Computed example of a mutant assay.
Amino acid sequence: MQSTVCELNKCTGCAACLEVCSKNAITIKDSLKAYNAVIDNEKCVSCNACHKICQNNSPIISKKPESWYQGWTKDKEQRLKSSSGGVATALAKYFVANGGIVCSCIFRNGKFIYDFAESLEDVEHFSGSKYVKSNPTGIYKKIKGYLLNNKKVLFIGLPCHAAALKKFVGEKNAEENLYLVDLICHGSPSPRNITMFLENKDRNIIDVKHLAFRDNNNYRIMLNGQGLDTPGVYDSFLLAFLNGINFTENCYSCNYAKIERVTDITIGDSWGSRLSAEEIKAGISLMLCQTEKGLNLLEDSGIELIDVNLDNAVAHNHQLEHPYIKPTKYDKFFNVLLKTSNYDNAVKASLTRTYINQQIKRILVKLKIVSKN
């Protein structure tokens, strides 16, 4: 007999329940459409630890920003190769240079996982946007151990994972030495999506050493530094992602899609920036600070901080107001995908006009009739 830690299909995949379960009775089940933390009741001793740690069962306190900026790293080379303004990398580099430990997401051996960096070289592995869910299994106890040994830790990740970490270590342990930075997340799919998509292209994700979803400011899947598709054309995975149709079910009722945040700093793209076209092309980050600790970190990290209109920033980042609205063709997309295991078929069936337009553009770009930009 099995049951779930939280409401069916609402699991964020934070995996905090796995780490508090002393009987190994919990497994995260990934159905492609949704995650669920499933309890094996034959192993369960009804201690209730998993239910207590779950962020869906007892939400964590969030705060409105105290200050807000747009800007970029002052390291021109880093900004050039970053997908936005390079702020996350600037924060991480400053932190390790001053004796701290950074925890963030990396792509390794075909998986998206969280790892730790204690050197500038290690930080480089965190670079790049990841448009799938990362697996945080195993990080909570390690971070709590660092904190109990008076080590400073900077966590950069999804807001639901930041919330889980804050609950796991406890508010008191998080006050001084834990610095939390969350991303403005518009929703995230199961990593099985990208694995399936690459299989459709006769690529094995295990053979990919470096996987990126953006080429600087351009949305484009890059495998080992090479573009997978025609420049300027969106492939099926990115079409699904950019149209919000391949996220897991919980993302459409996300508890963190609002201006109030659970972290010290929130970062994302500064969409709708009123700065010059040249600066926008170079990459601009949006930064919201919820705590004085977060503001001090920003000010010390070699980041160009420029005033930004918060109302305008929120208007261009709907995730600071409400979760992504589930597309009407969501179920059709997954029905076709689960039936055929073919990403092109699923996107063609659910985003027909958009899919066909990209096929036409692919031909026109190859014939040099239209620009790839």
Rank of each mutant, 00 (worst) to 15 (best):
E7F: 12
G13R: 05
C14K: 09
A15T: 15
S22A: 14
K33T: 15
A37C: 11
V38P: 04
I39S: 06
S46E: 14
H51F: 14
I53G: 05
C54S: 01
C54Q: 01
I60M: 10
I61K: 15
S67Y: 11
S67R: 13
W68L: 06
W68Y: 15
W72N: 08
L80F: 14
S82R: 04
S83Q: 08
G85M: 01
C103D: 03
C105A: 15
I106S: 07
K111I: 02
F112E: 10
S119A: 04
L120Q: 05
V123T: 01
S127D: 11
Y131L: 06
Y140C: 08
I143R: 06
N150A: 08
N150T: 04
V153K: 03
L154M: 07
F155N: 00
H161K: 00
A162G: 04
A163V: 06
F168C: 00
E171I: 03
K172C: 02
E175F: 02
S188I: 09
F197Y: 08
F197Q: 01
I206F: 09
R214A: 01
R214Q: 13
D215H: 04
I221P: 05
M222A: 03
L223P: 07
G225T: 07
D229R: 00
V233L: 03
V233W: 02
Y234S: 07
F237V: 10
A240Y: 01
T248R: 15
E249W: 06
S253N: 10
I259E: 07
T263S: 15
D264V: 00
G268Y: 01
D269A: 08
I280C: 12
I284D: 01
S285G: 09
L288H: 05
T291F: 05
L295T: 01
N296A: 14
L298S: 02
L305N: 08
N309E: 15
H316P: 09
E321L: 13
K326Y: 13
K326D: 08
D331H: 13
D344R: 09
N345H: 10
V347C: 06
R353K: 13
K361W: 00
I369R: 02
V370M: 12
N373D: 15
